[in-house]
Each structure stands twice: as C-alpha cells, then as structure tokens.
Design a protein around this nucleic acid. Structure first.
Lengths: 346, 346
DNA sequence: CTTAGTTATACTCACTTCTAGCATAAGAGC
DNA sequence: GCTCTTATGCTAGAAGTGAGTATAACTAAG
C-alpha cells in the first residue's frame, strides 16, 4: 500500500482598500473537512479558507501557472505580483482528513493586487487581515488585548511547564515574540506569535486539533504541547480552516519584511498616488503609524518615487502632488525598500 | 491515466572551513539521469548533486523530520539549524526524465553545520561554494571574469533580441544583476545572476536542457529564450545535476540576506571564537572583504557577542580575546544581524 | 635581546542618516 | 476673512558609518 501525494496550491491574495489590508477568502467547500460540532468552533459553519486549487501534475507546466489558472477561473482576478511563500507538509495538518488518505502537501503563494481588481466572482470575500490577527494591529494604539488576555494566558502557559529549562525557554519566546518585559515589538514576527498562541491553546484551531487528535488517538497524548482547549469566548482572532491561519501569518510576516527592502508596495497602489496614500498602505501592512514628514523625505530622497506634475485635489486639504514609482531606483540602490521612519518606538 | 506526484527533499548543507564556504555534494547516483554524452558536459561523468532523499508520505510525519532522517543515514551528519528554502516544481526541471513519468516536486532546505561535523560518510564531498559561482567571489577582488566573459556574453544576448522592449528589459536586468554601467553590486542577487547566465546560454545546464528539449520536441522550439549552446570552454562555473545549481543559488542568496538580520552565522562557528574568525565567516558567505575595525565595533556595540575572558594565542600575532554569541540580543533588538560594514563600495 | 612581522584593539574625525519637531502653504467650508 | 484640514519645507540634535591613525601584544629571525 503506497500513500499517494496530492499537491494543493494556496494563494494569499492581498489588496489594500480604505487603508486596511484585505485578503481574499472563500468558504471552505469540502464537506469532509467541515469543522466538527464538538469543537465549539463557529457551530459547524464552514470556516473561512484561503482560496486554493489542486496542481494538475500532468497539465500545469509550472506551479505558478497552475496558481494563476485556477485563481482566474474561480475569482476572475488576474494576478500580477506573485511570490512563493512556503510549503506546508506536516501530516495531520488537515485534521479532518482520515488516516490512510492521501498525503497533502500545500504550496502557498503570496500575491498582491491593486484596488481596481477588487470585484470578485463567486463565493469569495475580501476580509480585513487583522480580523484574524487582532493583536497585530497597532495602528490605533498597542492593542489592549496583549496585556489583558495574551500576556496572562501565555504566562500561565509558561508556568504550566514543570521542567525549568522548558519554562525559561518558553519565557524567552514569549518575551521576544510579544515584546513583553521591555523587549521591543518586532512587526515581522507574526508567525512566531501565532504559533505561540497555538501552542498555548489560545486559538480555535488548536482546540480543534486537540479534539481530532484525541479522536484519532494515534499516539499517546502525553505531549507537553497543549493545555486543554479553552472555552470559545477566550479564543483569539477569527479562525480559519485547516492550517490556513498559519499560512496567513507566514504571508503577513513575509510581506512586512519585504516592504523594507524591495519596492513591492507599489504593486498594491494605482500607478499614480499621493504620498499619503503610499504611507497609508505601508502603515496598513506594517500595522504601525509612521512619522509623516520623515516618511516623505525618506521616499523622495531615496529616489523611490517621482512627481508626475499633477495634483490630486480630493484630499480634503491642500491638494497633494501625485507621484509614481521611479523604476530607475532598481538600478541605483541595492535594496530599495521603505523603512519604517518614525515607527512608534514603544 | 493520472500522473503520480513524488516529493523529493533537497538539502543545501553549508559549513565554513579555512575561511571558505563549503557545501555538501554527492555524485548523482541515478543512471537514468546521467548526463547524455552529446551535451558536451563532463563527458558522461555523473555530475555533482545536492544530497537528496524522497519523502515517505506514509512515514515521515513532517518534511523536516524526513530531511533530518535521510541526511543522518546518508552522511552521519546531525543537522542543527534548518530552514526551508523553496519548492521547485516545474515540469521538465529534470530533463532526463521521460515524459509520462511521475511529476517530481522538490522541496529544498538550507542547513548550517559547524566545522566540527565536517567528516562525512559515504560518497559525499565538501566543495567550495564558489566553484559553482566563481563570479560571486569578490574576496580577493572583483572577478575579472565579469568584464572579460560575462558582460560581453550578456551584451550579445541583449542584442540578440530584435524586439526593442525585450531588449531594454534585458539590458535593465543585466545591469541590476551584475552591477554593470555603474549600478551597484548586490550580493544577494545570486539567483538572478545565475538565471540570466542560464537564459543567455552561459552555463552547462542550459545547453543540456536545450538538447533534451530538442530531442523531446514537445513544443515548437521558437521561444526567444536560449541562444544555441556554446562550446564547453566558455561555459561558466562547475555544473550540477538537474536544477541543483539553481537551488544552490537560491540558498546562497537567502543566506547572504539572512546574516544581515538574524544571527545565523553563529550556527557555523564553534561556541567560542575570535572576532576575526567571525569576520572571516561573514566574509566567506557575503563574498566581500570587510573593514576590520568597523566590523568589531558593530558586533560589539551591537551586543551580538560577549567576551568569555579567555584568550586565543594561536592567532600568530597578539592573542585575541575569545567571544561567544550573546543570546540576550534576541530580546533587545528586533533584527539582530551583522551588516556588512565597510564592504567594498565598488 | 633587538628587530621585523603579524594580529588585536583603541580611538578619532568627517560625514551621512535618522528623529522629532516647528513652521508655512494651499486648498475647502462657513 | 476665519478655521479646519492636509501638504510640504526645514532644522537642531542624536545616532550611526566609513576610513583611517595609533598603539598593544605576541612570534620568529638575526
């Protein structure tokens, strides 16, 4: 008996509208993967999922062509910027799948589209990225949830470890990831934060996995990993199907890192824009407010943009100059990105 | 007829010895993939390959465990730091494979090991990374090969395009990737450079692919991609099997980027080291010489290392203080890496 | 035991780049 | 004209970088 392998392509399709980052989601269509009622997890409704499609190993010449193909079919969107994110292949990453079924390897891609393309066909929805990761949204202020719910829960999790080595290891991890005890907040550590919450039993997916694992009872359930599932009310952020929220966290972290050294933001903007529009998009992705004057100096002096000579008078105050991406910067600077000037230091 | 999928795990296993970066290679064992004689490519000898092993979809619980497993079996090496690199899945990435065979998806990993572990079992060899990419080695000086062979060949390739849009696109690409016409050299663009050389027919693998493609004659061969294969003498760098040199280029680029914002170098060093040893390892990876005084200032003031109080008197001159990695820096700084202070500016 | 060679380490100075502001400009609505 | 809003210009001080000079501590040759 040989276990067959199936390749699934997942797309994290990102846009920014109304100064919020959005991702394209679908309702998970496969009934066999529907969340069991007992998970206390959206009461049996099909959860949000990232759009995905199978790789046709015979027809799709490259992985990316395969991705473009079914995205076009399912949503009508023509992907512009696409980059491979990560491949996820743990067994049991799809807890609903019966043992003995095929091994599913999912290769995730990050795609950026412009606001104009926002209309979609079918069952797809644009959702605010931060619904899934409310603790990542520092635009307004440092989310109170961090001190009120996350830190206490993680501290309990640290103390639940009896072995002192494990305990101090956990303590270090939560301090670095969530900027506790005076450590700085690193916007890029999105995945680390999600995984800590998962291990500490603070997200719905973990509760679900635990239930399924218990049902399957494949290995003695004494791993020190998870505490017992929490009641629904305390679980953090909007859940997704399978490991899709993990994929999403990977994407957010990658994107937050990438804007600093490659001019990818412009893939999310129309060809001409005001500096404030540009700033808002960067802020939406980074989840942090920036110092306006420094931002504009950085972008202009860095040669990333050039004025078009036109003005935009729909800004409410003084009309703003319109700019466009300055392609020559690619020749001039090794890593042209947009740092985060004046990001909240605390 | 359904096409089965096979997952292969590739490992780019890196160490630094004698101030040179080394990677672990094997001779490609599969005869069906042996390079055809007509390719004028090492005369039918089995080419170097990255160590690899299949994923057992039934047994290997995670991809990384699968990797660790066969690396241990084949080479006796216990991997420490491991990170996923990229998944390669183009059809025909294995030109020797007959049509109708399984679709091979290869998931590549980057692993760093310390010098102590250098002894290996079996057919494996440690090879200098720059044998495969001689144009990436700027340690001694800017390689003359860039001006003498690469630039002329790429210029011919640019001019071979009749369409002016394609031509200027190609021109921009070669300037950015190879720092021609006054553009700066970006150490991280290793993959871009390899792919340009590939497209321009300057590496043996491309010549081979062209031959195989012609033999298979699956699509009308009018793609503007490759010029005709060059005679062996002009081909650049030591070739590898299949697309392994592409994987290697991905790894080098990733590693060069990563040392700047994560303290991964220390995975390549013994627990205590002198600052010059540290500098030599960074230089070996980055392929650039650094300014010694500034380097030490950066690393010390950056809190990346701390003195152990011991001295190393085997340095030849004045004995050097021994340092070790300072773990607390992870808590203190968001992205603790080692910039490239004083990197050759031209 | 003096001298030359080698490596380590301290310190400096000019210069660029951020940070965090203040100040002014140019529109809209009343 | 006044007020509100957004855009844009400018700057003092802090921090970080680049490229050195100077000095210290050892080894090996004579």
């Amino acid at each position: 008996m040989t276990t067959p392998v199936v390749i699934v392509l997942n797309g994290v399709i990102v846009a920014v509208t109304d100064d919020r980052p959005r991702i394209l989601t679908v309702k998970h269509p496969d009934d066999s993967l529907r969340v069991p009622k007992e998970a206390d997890f959206e009461e049996g409704a099909p959860p949000d999922a990232l759009p995905f499609g199978p790789l046709d190993p015979a027809a799709d010449r490259t992985l990316e062509l395969g991705l473009n193909g079914w995205v076009r079919e399912q949503t009508g969107i023509e992907l512009g910027y696409v980059e491979q994110l990560y491949s996820f292949g743990d067994r049991n990453r799809e807890p609903g799948v019966r043992q003995g079924g095929p091994r599913v390897i999912s290769i995730a891609y990050l795609a950026l589209v412009r606001e104009e393309q926002l209309s979609v066909r079918g069952e797809a929805n644009w959702r605010d990225w931060y619904e899934y990761f409310p603790w990542e949204d520092w635009l307004w202020r440092r989310p109170s949830m961090i001190d009120e719910q996350i830190a206490p829960a993680l501290t309990r999790w640290v103390q639940a470890a009896t072995d002192t080595t494990i305990r101090s290891r956990r303590q270090e991890r939560i301090e670095i990831a969530f900027g506790l005890e005076g450590a700085p907040w690193d916007q890029e550590r999105v995945l680390e934060r999600y995984e800590l919450l998962y291990e500490a039993g603070q997200v719905a997916e973990q509760a679900l996995d635990t239930i399924v694992a218990r049902r399957d009872r494949q290995e003695s359930q004494k791993s020190s990993k998870g505490s017992s599932p929490q009641p629904k009310t305390s679980l953090l952020g909007r859940p997704m199907a399978l490991d899709h929220r993990r994929i999403l966290a990977t994407a957010l972290g990658r994107l937050r890192g990438k804007i600093k050294y490659r001019p990818v933001v412009f893939e999310l903007l129309s060809p001409t824009f005001t500096l404030l529009q540009l700033q808002r998009v960067v802020e939406a992705l980074a989840g942090v407010r920036l110092h306006k004057q420094n931002f504009r100096r950085l972008v202009e002096k860095g040669g990333l943009v050039e004025g078009t000579g036109q003005l935009d008078s729909k800004t409410g105050g003084r009309p703003a100059k319109l700019f466009c991406f300055r392609r020559e910067v690619l020749r001039e600077r090794p890593a042209p990105g947009i740092g985060l000037p004046g990001a909240l230091t605390k």
